[in-house]
Design a binder for these strands. Structure first.
Lengths: 334, 334
DNA sequence: ATATTTTGAGTAAACGTTTACTCAAATCAA
DNA sequence: TTGATTTGAGTAAACGTTTACTCAAAATAT
């Protein structure tokens, strides 16, 4: 591959001059510019970003860490980030940590070694261990769909507890009294705990009686978890008329399972999802859900790291408003 | 950030020695190893991959180019690639070209500048222009879900024409005689043309009469395209009993549109999809489809570039077998 | 005891850029 | 004309590694 030296030789100038025309600094005549540009053209020269990175301390690369999330959710989140990052001339390295601490540490090491300009950390609690590593490297960091109460890291998220509260309250307002929840992994500090809490609070603030077994949780937040959870929920509580799901995928899995079990949705059981992924529009029935504007949030998070990279020290955390998207998976009971 | 010099100073050795213990070359005593390792630990030193890359000419990064595909399909494809690539200690830069030639060229330039070790190009025709650019850079290239008839580039794909032929024949075998197709973008050389061809060939080889207007095409291969195409198909040909869809997403959009139009699927109209993305399992009804093992294919493509990077010059192209996955969206008519 | 090999470690060049510094030639002011 | 300034361009150091070369000290062979 041609290097700047080759170009310099071909154009009969020094490499400094080539560099200058490349970067549009001043210090060369129109004639030399032409000569250099022609040489570049002829040799098909592309400046070596690695060498540039070494000296400029910028790689124009940012790293993204995502845990084991449902694929559609990740894909929407990533797309928002990727677009924004690329618009600014950088690229994105995506790392699936699978929620494993060890893997996360490895990826962190990798990203630091690669000298990424910034890191976006999503949907998981930022362990002290992770933070220290990043902190030490001096790489700007922003949190997406997660937050840290004690560490000074800006974040972009939705108020999960409140959103879940509203989802549940929505069911109550439609006249439902027997409401269950399929909660995904209820120990998950991000998508589990707060949503369960919101659910409970809504019920208790409306004095609706409730048993522990009306919240059924599973490993994750996917179709299968939704389907399985729904089945156990219905065998334990056949009189339930509404379900709050911790993710759209779970809601979809539930609808499918209902179909197999001969349970009509929403005629017999209503459901509200969480996330508002694209497919909600074309499910049968179309899914009523809490909209969490992931693509937009990803975009904002990306802008935030980019700004930090460009020197804007501390960014303000932002909490996005959620929204109830009414479609047809919830039946009015009153 | 600490550099190798800092480590050398702290451990009281030369940078060459540090480098040696870092890379496990011989030439140091047990004592110095310990000293160096301790210094590394204390300083939280992480070797600078950029500097390493400059000298070793390896960035441990591979680039992926994807056009405007449906998000779920991309996400499955990417996941197979990413896992494999990461297992081998490299990372992946994903570039969404949106099927724009100009953007593609820009990304290509970017990937070359970044000195990626390999490139995976997916689901689009490899223009001469693209090829020349990559060729010139000497970066190993493999094609995924596409192929080049004239250029010497290894590829991983499925036989689209044959797959579509089989899908259509499957409908015929179930006793369908009035079969339409919603084709996505029928000019797309990869996912359009061959599938339309396969469809036509199946009909004609079974002497089933057919009109041009029974193939309706649209911009892309997404839900909405499916929904819209189905609507026009049904208004023009209300007597149709089966539809061959060019993608699962289109089939899903069609089912949803059918629901709105009061058309029962599969009771009134049957449908077969294409791709076998995960969600087919939980659609209502579960979608019969042509399985194209994208995750697996991505994995194989990734292995191929990796092998090429490691010096295995020419790789054999592989065409994956497709498979009909029978679920419940096709009704038997005989 | 001497000659030879092995071991442990340092020095410096190289990778492909950018940029501070230098300087001759050209332009301008007086 | 002379001195001052501007313009165009080259030289060389620096970025953080790896590695070929070198060499003294230690270990081994004779």
């Amino acid at each position: 591959m041609a290097t700047i030296k080759d170009v310099a030789r071909a154009a009969n100038v020094s490499i400094a001059t080539v560099s200058r025309v490349l970067n549009n600094k001043s210090g060369f005549s129109e004639d030399t510019r032409k000569a250099v540009e022609q040489a570049i053209e002829e040799l098909g020269y592309v400046p070596n970003g690695v060498a540039r990175g070494l000296i400029s301390k910028r790689t124009n690369t940012i790293g993204l860490l995502v845990p084991a999330l449902s694929s559609m959710l990740v894909s929407e989140m990533v797309s928002g980030i990727e677009r924004t990052v690329h618009e600014q001339g950088s690229s994105l390295i995506v790392c699936h940590t699978e929620s494993k601490g060890k893997k996360t540490m490895q990826y962190l090491q990798l990203l630091i070694a690669k000298q990424v300009d910034g890191i976006i950390f999503t949907s998981e609690v930022l362990l002290q261990e992770y933070y220290q590593m990043i902190e030490r490297s001096g790489i700007p960091l922003v949190l997406l769909s997660t937050e840290s109460l004690n560490l000074p890291v800006p974040s972009v998220k939705v108020n999960d507890r409140l959103a879940s509260f509203h989802a549940t309250e929505y069911m109550i307002r439609q006249g439902h009294k027997k409401i269950g929840m399929i909660s995904g992994n209820r120990n998950d500090m991000i998508a589990g705990v707060p949503r369960v809490e919101g659910f409970r609070m809504a019920l208790s603030s409306h004095q609706i009686p409730f048993e522990e077994s009306m919240i059924v949780s599973h490993k994750g937040f996917s179709y299968i978890d939704g389907a399985k959870s729904f089945r156990t929920l219905m065998t334990d509580h056949p009189d339930i008329t509404a379900v709050v799901a911790a993710s759209d995928e779970m809601a979809l899995g539930m609808i499918s399972e209902g179909y197999k079990m001969g349970i009509q949705i929403p005629e017999q059981v209503s459901v509200i999802g969480y996330d508002n992924i694209q497919i909600c529009n074309v499910s049968i029935p179309p899914l009523t859900t809490i909209s969490q504007p992931v693509a937009k949030m990803g975009e904002v998070a990306a802008k935030m790291v980019l700004d930090m990279i460009h020197g804007d020290e501390k960014q303000e955390s932002v909490v996005f408003p959620h929204e109830i998207i009414e479609r047809q998976s919830v039946k009015k009971m009153n």
